[in-house]
Each structure stands twice: as C-alpha cells, then as structure tokens.
Write a protein that binds this DNA or RNA. Sequence first.
DNA 1: ATGGTAGACACTCTA
Length: 270
Amino acid sequence: MRFRLVTWNVNSIRLRLAGLKRLVRAWRPDLVCLQETKVADERFPYAECRALGFAHVHAHGMGGYNGVAILSRLPLAEVAAREWCGRADRRHLFATIRPAGRRVAMEIHNLYVPAGGDVPDPALNDKFAHKLAFLDEVTAWLAGRGRRGLRAVLAGDLNVAPLPTDVWSHRQLLAVVSHTPVEVARLERLAASLGWADAVRRFIPPAERLYTWWSYRARDWSASDRGRRLDHLWVTPALAPALAGAAVLRAARGWEDPSDHVPVRIDLAL
DNA sequence: ATGGTAGACACTCTA
C-alpha cells in the first residue's frame, strides 16, 4: 500500500480549514502533522477534520501560540505529548500507527521547534538559547530511545534550513536565525540521534533549491522567491527502503489566505 | 539600518 504523510505549519488551524480541504483534495494524504495550530484543544475543529476523512484527530495545543495536531485516516496507538525545556509549550506530539494489514508498526513524531527570535546569540537572546536547548534535549531523548530496526518518521517545522540550497542566499543568511552554522550543527546532531535520513532530499537533489516557507512581508513572495526550507520529513534507516516519493506543495503559498509555510509530503510503500 | 505582514488576543506577543 501507499502511505502518504504530510507535514504543514498552518499558522492557525481555524483560519486554514479551506486550505486544509484543498490540500486533501490535491494530495489525499493518509496522515497530516500540523504545527502552529494556535488553538486550545477544546476549541480545535475536530468535526471539520473528521469531515475531511480523518476519523482520528489528536490535538495538543494552547491558545495563542504553538500547538501541534495529528490527523489520521487510520487509528493511532500510544498517542503522547512531551514537554521540553520545562515549558508547557505544546510542540511535540507522537503516536504509533500500524497501517492496515501490516505487521510492523511505525512511530510518528510531530515536532515544532522554537523559531529562535532575531539575534543569533544565546547570551543576548533567550529565544535563541531556548531553540538550541530544545534541539539538544530532543536529540538526547531520541538517542536514548533508539533500538534496532525502529521504524519512525520525524515530521515538522524544525525552523532550521540546513543546506546552502535550502535558503535563497546562503551567504546572506549565514548570520540569520534559521541558517546559522550553530543551528545547522544542532540539526545535524538531531539527525544523527537515530540516523535519520532527510527523506525529501532523497527525491529532490541537494543541488536544487527548495523552500517550504516564504515571509508574509515580501511584496511578491513568488517573484522575489526569498524562501527557506524549514519544514522537514525524516525517516529512520529501517524505514528508508520504503520511501517512494516526496514533494513540496509550493502552489499552496499562493492560495487565498495562505499560511507562510506550505505542505510537504512523503510517500511510503508499505 | 529598517520595515515590511499575519495571527491571537485584547496590549503586545510571536513568527
């Protein structure tokens, strides 16, 4: 079977229901990891998500900021959330899924890494210090729970664009939060925690420019095309052989009332 | 060096 998994930072789920519907029509995903839902769980639009075919909706949010959710056509088991850096931030929700008829289960981690503020110096900027500490904590935790043959996906807005081709100008963004060497090194350590493979770059070669986020502040996001690849889908080595495709829905940035991030998908042949 | 926009919420924070 083909299992299609999408990650999307929606920047308010309540304002992005039309976009979600469009995404579902365009891509027919089996599972969607959302970030920046910006809504408390009791106000999450469960019924609207169920109407789109996701019988299993798990939200982990709060009012105003942050928030993650997993929408799934298939039932999820062991749904859990974790707090990082001693904050009740709502940035991590994970679960296990056993696609129909498959004996082997797969773990799915939905992660929203702190953006990190403007100044890329942890001594001057608490938000940047938080971002680095967050990446360190998640790295240590993941490394500690690794086991042979673990099948897992890490999906989310990691708020780091690691490759020179993941930003519109490597040179001009070296000192800009999201592309600094210190963040890229942290992301590489995170990737090493479980030997994660950058699934999207298996299909869209690293030499090609690729973005998943464009600022709202550009006059014409498409013409200036000053994007960054902040949203990622990673798989463990045990799952890598199942990778069958990947794509970025760039057109979604031009939809009516867009998020500043666009959906990213992988297909797994299970 | 600055300001540009979007979202939640209710003043200013976060991105």
